[in-house]
Computed example of a mutant assay.
Amino acid sequence: MVRLRPKFEAVQKYARDHSLQYDPACAREILTSAVYRRGCGLESVFDEPFWECGGLCQVFRGHVPSGEACPDLDTDLSAFVESCAEADEFCDILDTFTCKPFDDLPTMQIGQTCMDEDANDLGECAEGLACSFDSYECVPEVGEGEACGDDPAVCEGALICDGGVCVASRPSGAACDSPYQCETVACMNGVCRDEPVICLVDEPSDLVFGFNLWTY
């Protein structure tokens, strides 16, 4: 972790320079969750249990009022810093670069546009539907053994689109060509592994954003 120290210090320096408020409870949640759920002596679980343990809170929060401009932070900073003052607001770095509240997305039905061309969500597809990366519309979910083309979003549940067909993810020890084929999203040397993720931390933000580790 010595090589990551300058990056952690950069986050701390930004917080000091911009008079951000430190949330020790959030910091404790993130570190405890990362070590407990993804520690070197434990099986890695990558996504869901970690997000349920406080991974979405912000260690530092700023003072930018609703509707006013917020800074475009780099990945490591954005993982731990939210410049907006209100706890229910975020900096819209994909569009307006202003502080805005989290919106409740409308429920979309089959054929309705659920995503724009920049991959911004416009709505949530109703049960049994998925938002297609090809058409940007809500389409029926595809079951196991059925064709999905090149669209990974349409497979139902935990199924993945592999070779144009929706199939179950491969277990630890199975042969693989891509991390996305594995239950653990860890394909190393052609084999699916249940890798202790904390050992693979390459950036400070990896403690928060598990998807940063998928290709390592």
Rank of each mutant, 00 (worst) to 15 (best):
V2P: 07
R3C: 13
L4Q: 05
E9H: 11
Q12W: 13
Y14P: 06
D17K: 13
Q21W: 11
A27M: 04
A27E: 01
E29M: 14
I30H: 03
A34I: 00
G39I: 02
L42R: 15
S44A: 13
C53I: 06
L56C: 15
C57T: 06
F60C: 00
F60G: 00
H63I: 10
P65H: 02
C70K: 07
D74M: 13
T75N: 12
L77Y: 02
A79I: 13
A79L: 13
C84Y: 06
C84F: 08
A87T: 10
D88P: 02
E89F: 12
C91N: 09
L94A: 12
D95F: 15
F97N: 11
T98W: 01
C99P: 10
L105N: 11
I110L: 09
T113N: 01
E117V: 01
D121G: 04
G123T: 05
A126E: 04
E127C: 07
G128H: 07
G128S: 12
C138L: 00
C138Y: 00
E141K: 10
G143S: 14
E146A: 08
G149A: 05
D150Q: 06
D150T: 06
D151S: 04
P152G: 08
P152R: 05
G157P: 14
I160Q: 03
G163T: 00
G163L: 02
V165R: 03
A168F: 01
A168N: 01
G173F: 08
G173M: 12
C176G: 09
D177N: 04
Q181K: 06
G190H: 14
G190F: 14
P196C: 04
V197H: 01
D202K: 02
V208F: 00
F209C: 01
F209H: 14
G210H: 05
L213T: 02
T215P: 01
